[in-house]
Design a binder for these strands. Structure first.
Lengths: 251, 251
DNA sequence: ATTGTTTCCGTATGGCCTACGGAAATGGGG
DNA sequence: CCCCATTTCCGTAGGCCATACGGAAACAAT
């Protein structure tokens, strides 16, 4: 399915929800059975366990013991609910701000990765029109502050910011993709690749792929750890090199 | 919705389709009304125009003037169809192999970006269990050959490969996300951000976000081009710095 | 008890994938 | 010309999804 997108609904309503603008208590009327926080928490639990595909309005309502349509009293729609879920889990990063600028960016990358690990459905959430809530904003501030301390001039800070954010979210999404697929299909990544052993036997053409063949023969693919560990260390390497490049470009 | 995943179906069948293993012509039996190639082409057209969400089996069959279930005679299921679509559009990159290793990697990035631009639904396709067809394999060979020429030792070539692939696909996906959302919702990115002007008026806290405020005051956000252009140049910057880092790490 | 206000939620619409099994088309052998 | 094995075509049906609509139910104040 396509990426989940932010709702086109009333921005004022969505922003009030994201920042939990306190609503004046209603003096009259029926008492609510559920709150926005309960709905968001239940939705996150369902998505954590069964994926964003399983997080339907009916499923969340069932979890809370209310009717499906009751949710719409508290939340404009599913897209906005995903916005709320996203900002809540981004807040879990709880970013600490000491160390050099490089250390802080690596800290940011680690914490963001941890969010994706804990909530693999984040892979399916598009970040180009992000929820403008405290979780997202605190993260942006953290990275921008670090980059500003690096000595880059302001214009380049904003450019580097997009590059770093893109790398970190992309890397975290990639890493988690494998686990998510494993959960969704009931087949591990290693098992999946194993079942495709016949590719190397029947289709791989040594003449057509000399570079891959040479690397294979040089033992470059005789890795020790699991697939996931290899991917993880590759992204550590990539982030390091990206920061090296940014640092070097200033001297 | 969740990311589209590769089918857990019979790998041998899927590989035969990906590499278009010639089937012995059937001497008897009803003549097929459609071919695999026609199905894949029609599916790509639908997805290009209306997104992967609209690419349903029923929609593709309608496009071809056949019944929905007829497709299942030629293609195991939707997941495998997406694999076939993916490999076909990756083949469109048509990679040329001259220039320095850096030039070749930038060429690869540009051509891959072009694929995403032409086929925005690629954003929704997970690449952790990729279709092992000629389109993907040729790309891998191209990047690995370039990195091998850079002088990295074999072990590091495979590590750098994952980092570069992650960056390129992540960047291309990010760029395209905006257009895809614009098409899906009928609202451009600039318009979307404009509608959220009230965020800066009502919610942005100068005390809480000093780094962002300082950058704003320094004029770092007074960009000239569109949002899309800014994102594009940021990823060019990022790739350059990543390659700088890789290059510098060897000296 | 009535009224105003708010929340709860049953129903209905139109979509999705695909298992199943029978109908229709095709070419060769009698 | 008919029969039949083989292959493809496809209608039906089941179980999911989001959400518009409008009435029922709960509550406080009068």
């Amino acid at each position: 399915m396509a990426a989940e997108r932010s709702g086109g609904g009333d921005p004022a309503r969505t922003l009030a929800l994201l920042w939990r603008t306190p609503q004046p208590p209603k003096p009259v009327g029926r008492k609510p059975k559920v709150s926005v926080d309960q709905i968001v928490t239940a939705a996150i639990e369902v998505a954590d366990r069964e994926g964003l595909g399983a997080m339907s309005m009916a499923r969340v309502a069932q979890e809370l013991g209310v009717g499906t349509m009751s949710l719409y009293t508290h939340v404009p729609g599913k897209a906005e609910l995903i916005d709320l879920m996203t900002d809540v889990v981004l807040q879990e990063r709880d970013l600490a701000s000491d160390g050099t600028w490089r250390e802080r960016i690596k800290h940011y990358a680690d914490r963001t990765r941890a969010v994706y690990q804990a909530h693999p459905w984040m892979r399916d959430v598009s970040m180009v029109r992000p929820p403008l809530g405290p979780g997202l904003m605190d993260g942006q501030e953290f990275v921008l502050a670090a980059l500003a301390d690096s000595g880059l001039e302001p214009r380049l800070v904003t450019v580097a910011h997009v590059a770093v954010e893109g790398f970190v979210h992309g890397a975290a999404a990639s890493e988690v993709d494998d686990q998510q697929l494993a959960a969704a299909t009931g087949e591990s990544g290693d098992s999946w690749w194993g079942a495709r052993q016949i590719f190397w036997d029947d289709y791989f053409d040594v003449e057509r792929y000399p570079a891959m063949t040479a690397l294979w023969n040089a033992g470059a693919y005789e890795t020790e750890g699991s697939l996931a560990e290899h991917v993880h260390s590759s992204f550590d390497f990539g982030l390091d090199k990206l920061l090296d490049g940014i640092e070097g470009g200033m001297r």
